[in-house]
Design a protein around this nucleic acid. Sequence first.
DNA 1: TTGTACGCGTTATCAT
DNA 2: ATGATAACGCGTACAA
Lengths: 344, 344
Amino acid sequence: MKYESVTIKDIAQQLNLSTSTVSRALRGSYEISSKTKKLVVDYAKKINYQPNPIALSLKERRSHSIGIIVPEIANSFFSQAIDGIESVAYKHGYHVNISQTHESFEREMINVQHMASRSMDGLLVSVSAETNDSSYLKNLHERGLPIVFFDRIIDEIDTYKVVCDNFKGAYNATTHLIKQGYKNIAHITSSSHLFITKKRLEGYKKALEDYKIKFNENLVRYCDHGGMDIEEVRNNIISLFSSKNAPDAIISAGDRITTVMISVMKNQSSIKKKIAYIGFSNSDLTDMFSPSLSVVRQPAFEMGKTAMELLIKIIESKRPIKEFETKTMESKIIIKESSLIPKK
Amino acid sequence: MKYESVTIKDIAQQLNLSTSTVSRALRGSYEISSKTKKLVVDYAKKINYQPNPIALSLKERRSHSIGIIVPEIANSFFSQAIDGIESVAYKHGYHVNISQTHESFEREMINVQHMASRSMDGLLVSVSAETNDSSYLKNLHERGLPIVFFDRIIDEIDTYKVVCDNFKGAYNATTHLIKQGYKNIAHITSSSHLFITKKRLEGYKKALEDYKIKFNENLVRYCDHGGMDIEEVRNNIISLFSSKNAPDAIISAGDRITTVMISVMKNQSSIKKKIAYIGFSNSDLTDMFSPSLSVVRQPAFEMGKTAMELLIKIIESKRPIKEFETKTMESKIIIKESSLIPKK
DNA sequence: TTGTACGCGTTATCAT
DNA sequence: ATGATAACGCGTACAA
């Protein structure tokens, strides 16, 4: 039960040549006579010779492949970002290996190690909600593994990063709700240690401040598993609405949390009054929701493209890059029905 | 810009041992003194030694990794199937490499070749809508590469396959619409050469036949790009409704086609009358649609699990397996509002 | 109990 | 213009 493939050695044997001659002929070396070259190339094509990339990786310490580490592929933001990454990668001859962490720190470590040890030329990483300790990443990065972070970045690791303007996105969303007349605006978000969580919280707070609304700690709820643990979201929602100071509007962070939140509210009979909400989401389906969902949308595809371009820049740079920048892209706020429900 | 890692040779040098001693010590061989063993293991741990899987793959011709080839990861059915695959794979110590074809035959070939040449121990494949020629897969399979097909199977290749009962799913959906009083039921589906397309069409036809409704070729529309080409779907829908014999209900195949169809109908002012529809979909969001979507749901997670179990069976079998079976799993039809709209 | 040598597939270096 | 050999990292048959 073993997959056997043709090697350079087989060709050499058949043609009574040495492996080095065959190798050179296949690579079109100028020191091989065109006669031999043709002989080899034709035969190789005939028996469908494919160089063994494993042997190449072992020798060259590179694989022309890059690895993607994301929390969930079943998340519109990430799947769109992956599409962007692929579009650039294929154009430059890189293969793409996708893996998901399911927001688990342990799985993330395993996947990253796996990618690194498989001679991935570089990694595009968006860390899991659980990831609090990035030392293992820092370690790999310091040993020379090219990494570009996107969306869920690690601030402390000095490399290229691609994010959208989370502060502004949250600020705009909050402002929008305030302008609609809502005063008790809750923020349900991912785990507290994520950089994007902090930025979004800052945007939310700043908007409240600018409109002289007192910040209420109790209205901010964290989901340490980034929405993967439905109970966690549900408990947050229920507790939010059972407090004496129940919210009249919510701004939620991330695709998963947003959809779980809506689903919980829909099925929770204890939540009777109409709530306005707006969420960070890149889903294509939000228009079909009822009410249609107001969203903060990130330029996922573009972010993926940019991240891949930066990664290639690191990989193919002759000398180590010293100066890194963080590319910040604009998010877009799209107002639909869910945030426009008139307050009673 | 090169990622250097610790090798067995480094350890051997540091400890004044031979590489083979180190190798054996690390693998816990009984022929190594426990003193040496401890020395090596401790030192290896200290400097965080990781065996190089590339070297191992080259040597052992296997990688303890399997590859997944699907059309789209941003498709609930496939992302759920992948979750099922991962759950089994991790339990058995296999790594999982995900790749998507975007319904492109060319991309599929490239990805499959890539996986095969990367010493994947086996492949889980769901072919693209464009895939008409499976000879390259057949070739690889005959040369010993373990392959299990799921959902989008290739009937002609003799191996394990996992599908859901597409005939029955389509039959039940069609019957349901008929019982609601609909007579002019269209079927908008994926590319005509796909096995699942054929089966679903058969189910649809049989239901019509059983209820004495004449089959109308013009009410069946194929999307050769499986819904990836939005214009293709739109044109099909528009042409369907501009014919004199416009449908009063639709049954659609696949997540992508279903959502694109809904979106087109929603935005197409020329489609005025209310249409009943039910679609093959595994999305978690269909309840939030307006109207909520009636679906035929496949047991995606279970299908992924089963496929992975079968693949492991092939990979780990001592002797070539001769007798293969096709596992058929039940789909579930879930009635919501979209197929219950009273006929005017 | 430990060391030496080989092979997995390839290319670069150094002969011839 | 072509061939022989070493090296990438590992495990193992064989030697000591």
